Simulated assay, not measured.
Amino acid sequence: MDNLALLTIGAVFLFGVLGVMGVHAWSSGRAQRQALVDRLSHTGQIEGYTGRRRRFRELDRRLRRTAFGKRIENRLAATGLDVTPGEFFVYMVVTVLGLWFVAQAVLASFFGPIAGLLGLWAAFGFLNWQRNKRIERFINQLPELSRILANATQAGLALRTALAMAAEELEAPAGEELGRVANKLAVGHSIDDALGELADRLPSRELVVLVTTLVLSNRAGGTVVGSLRNLTETLEERKETRREVRTQLSQVNMTAYAVPAMGLGALLLLDRVMPGAIDRMTGSFIGQAAVVTSMVLYGVGVFVIRRLSKIDI
Rank of each mutant, 00 (worst) to 15 (best):
N3A: 15
T8D: 12
T8P: 00
I9L: 15
V12A: 15
F13A: 15
G16H: 06
G19E: 05
V20D: 09
A25G: 07
A31P: 08
A31K: 14
D38A: 12
L40N: 06
S41I: 11
Q45N: 15
Q45A: 10
Q45F: 06
I46W: 02
G48W: 01
T50N: 14
R52W: 05
R52H: 12
R54G: 05
F56Q: 05
R61K: 08
L63Y: 09
R64P: 07
R65C: 09
T66G: 06
A67N: 04
G69V: 12
K70H: 08
L76W: 03
A77H: 10
A77M: 11
A78D: 03
A78P: 00
V83Y: 11
T84Y: 06
T84A: 12
P85R: 08
P85Q: 10
E87G: 11
E87R: 06
E87C: 10
F88T: 06
F89N: 04
M92R: 12
T95G: 14
V96A: 14
V96Q: 09
L97R: 05
L99K: 03
F101M: 13
V102S: 10
A105Y: 01
S109E: 05
S109V: 15
A115H: 03
G119K: 05
A122T: 02
A122P: 06
F124C: 04
L127P: 03
W129F: 09
Q130T: 05
R131I: 07
R131G: 07
K133Q: 12
E136R: 08
F138A: 04
N140D: 10
N140K: 10
Q141A: 08
L142G: 01
L142E: 01
S146Q: 00
L149V: 09
A150W: 01
A152H: 11
G156N: 11
A158K: 09
A166R: 02
E168V: 01
E169C: 01
E171I: 02
E171W: 01
A172Q: 02
A174F: 02
G175H: 02
E176M: 01
E177W: 01
L178Y: 03
V181Y: 00
N183S: 13
L185G: 04
V187K: 05
D192W: 01
D193N: 09
L195D: 02
R201E: 06
V211P: 03
N218V: 08
T223H: 00
V224R: 02
V224N: 01
V224I: 14
L228C: 05
L228P: 02
N230R: 01
L231R: 01
T232P: 00
E233A: 10
T234L: 06
R238D: 10
R238V: 07
R243D: 07
R246H: 05
V259K: 09
V259T: 14
A261H: 07
G263C: 14
L264C: 11
A266D: 05
L270N: 12
L270S: 14
M274Y: 10
P275W: 02
G276S: 06
A277K: 05
A277M: 09
D279A: 13
G283I: 08
F285Q: 11
F285G: 13
I286W: 06
A290C: 09
V292H: 04
S294Y: 11
V296R: 09
L297E: 09
L297H: 08
V300P: 04
G301L: 10
V302Y: 13
F303Y: 13
V304S: 13
R306P: 04
S309D: 07
K310E: 13
D312F: 04
